[in-house]
Design a protein around this nucleic acid. Structure first.
Lengths: 181, 181
DNA sequence: CGGTTTGTTTTGTCAAGACTGAACACGATG
DNA sequence: CATCGTGTTCAGTCTTGACAAAACAAACCG
């Protein structure tokens, strides 16, 4: 017999507070959906974004199958997207002695942001390459070179300032060690 | 009408094999394709990005049908995407007395960048809303609130610094008005 | 061993949307 | 008027990628 659920009772494995644990408040759902949409803008699967949202809101690591339940998606999707986020350094897989299930928690958020910096740098680099290629032909158009300069300056300044924001926040995080409650 | 060459050559304006005018150097093509990819990341059609790339490299306004030729796409696509970019304020349609064709030139680039700021602000707002909704329940988890704070602070700082970069570059641009050649 | 739990990979379906050719609108022009 | 030149809109095709179900793998248990 496959996964049989004849019992309508929520007698989950060991959680008496299961109801409070699995259901999501309206505001939480809104936040999670918003995160889904946001990450979709960044060309990540919507489920990946929802995963990030859910994990941000979860103080403790969340079990693999609970992720599937709470987001109401297939385990396959959870597997794919957790691995994706793990490789990007956005979330972290944690395990426990004597427990062969996987848990996940959010990382202190650099992953996604470094990605943004990379994108800016790529744009800068592309304009720089173009500028180089333009040099041999000086005659035609100073205006094009000017535009490329603007482009380069903008994206490099942007990437730099983003980096410094990141650094500042990282250092400020240093003191706020998560005290064991 | 701005003649692009000092015309030591006979008029070959209608010649499709006009090497200098219509064909793109390898570096130009690379740049244009890179711009296509970049804008695709920002959920704009690839052709729109190529259009931006081509117009950045074009000192003078480019004719509608030349856009289609040089990018080797249909006129329909040019129509759709030029209008899209026009509405976003990225490019500008210009016309000439006694000439019923449309020409296009790149704008001094604010359009796309303000868009980025908006996205950051949206993320900040979403986290702020969640933080508010979290307040009534003080008991559970200071760590979640901490994470949301981090999120909020990051994106607000980011949007601010981006804005100031934009402002700085705009003021430095003051001299480089669109000069009549 | 067979069976169970847990996560992964594969395969197929479906939707979104980019792009095109064709039809269209509309002014200019002979 | 018929026709051309110019750009727009519509309808259809085709690609891409997210997602789920099912098959699979591997560790564990009896």
């Amino acid at each position: 017999m496959t996964v049989s659920e004849p019992t309508p009772l929520p007698d989950r494995s060991a959680e008496p507070t299961a109801a409070a644990d699995l259901s999501l408040h309206a505001a939480e759902e809104r936040f999670i959906e918003a995160m889904g949409l946001m990450h979709e803008e960044d060309r990540l699967p919507r489920i990946a974004g929802r995963l990030v949202g859910l994990l941000i809101l979860s103080p403790d690591p969340v079990r693999f199958d609970h992720l599937a339940e709470r987001l109401r998606v297939s385990r396959a999707s959870i597997s794919t997207n957790t691995r994706l986020l793990e490789n990007m350094g956005v979330i972290q897989r944690v395990t426990r002695l004597g427990d062969r299930r996987d848990y996940f928690q959010i990382n202190q958020e650099p992953g996604l942001l470094l990605r943004i910096v990379d994108r800016f740098r790529a744009r800068q680099a592309s304009a720089e390459e173009m500028k180089q290629a333009l040099l041999p032909e000086p005659g035609a158009d100073g205006i094009v070179a000017e535009r490329l300069d603007w482009f380069i300056r903008f994206y490099s300044t942007l990437a730099d300032s983003l980096n410094s924001v990141l650094a500042a926040m990282a250092s400020r995080d240093g003191n706020s060690g998560p005290d064991p409650a």
